[in-house]
Simulated assay, not measured.
Amino acid sequence: MRFRAFIGAFLVFVLLPAAVVYGHGDAAPQPVDTTGLPPLGDAWVASNPYRNDAKLHDTAVEIGSRGYNSNCARCHGLEVKSGGMAPDLRELGEGETEDAWFITRVLNGATVGGRQKMPPFHGLLNQEAIWAIRTYIDAQPN
């Protein structure tokens, strides 16, 4: 009887929390379907091409929402509302300088004190997906 109690306690206090912790998967970057956005080419554009494009803005926000929620929300928060684990991206301004910082950070990731805080997405997400994510972030109220 004691052995059964031990096994029961082990399952509840050791395995169940482990299942909850790993329930979100391995946090590997997820591809983003950018159907609906025209190809931007191989050369990276300097600033967000969808910000002021009336025809593509809403499509970019929709695609960016999916991309953000599958790749960024686990650290930067749902609806871009940071819980403090990572920077609140709603505070990033909308200009060429901020776009340059954003694209550099997303492509190269971030390492602080020798620890990787954000994975690099270079080669994992195309620029249409990254700019769509940026458009989604810009569309969120502060």
Rank of each mutant, 00 (worst) to 15 (best):
I63P: 02
Y22I: 11
V61Q: 07
G123L: 08
D42R: 11
T135M: 11
A54E: 14
C75H: 02
I137V: 15
W131M: 05
G109H: 06
G77P: 06
V14Q: 05
A18Q: 12
G64A: 06
A46C: 03
H57P: 09
A27P: 00
I7Y: 07
E79C: 01
N48T: 07
I103F: 10
A100C: 05
I137F: 00
G84R: 07
F121Y: 14
A100T: 14
T35L: 12
A100L: 08
M1G: 15
E91I: 04
L89W: 06
S70T: 14
L15C: 13
S65V: 01
F6A: 14
A5C: 01
I103Y: 02
T34S: 09
G109Q: 06
G95I: 03
G8H: 00
P29F: 02
M1L: 11
G8E: 05
G113P: 04
V21I: 15
F13D: 00
Y50F: 15
L124M: 12
T97W: 04
N71C: 03
A18L: 15
V112I: 15
T35A: 15
L40G: 07
L78Y: 03
D138R: 10
A46K: 11
R4P: 00
M1F: 12
S70I: 07
P38Q: 08
G67N: 01
F3R: 11
F10D: 03
G83Y: 03
S47E: 15
A73W: 01
Y68K: 08
R115S: 14
L11W: 06
P17Q: 10
R115W: 09
V20Y: 14
K117R: 14
F3K: 10
T135S: 13
E79G: 06
I7M: 15
K117A: 15
V21P: 00
G123P: 06
N52K: 10
C72M: 02
H122V: 05
D99N: 13
H76T: 06
A9W: 12
L124W: 07
R51W: 10
A43P: 01
E62P: 01
A54N: 12
F13R: 02
V32M: 09
A110K: 11
N52I: 07
V45G: 05
I63V: 10
T59G: 01
E96V: 14
L56H: 10
R4T: 02
G8F: 05
M85A: 14
N71D: 08
G77Y: 09
E62F: 04
N71S: 04
P17H: 08
R4Y: 10
N142V: 08
M85P: 02
L124E: 13
Q30F: 06
Y50L: 05
V20N: 09
D33S: 13
P87S: 05
N142W: 02
A19E: 09
P119H: 01
E79F: 06
R105P: 00
G123H: 11
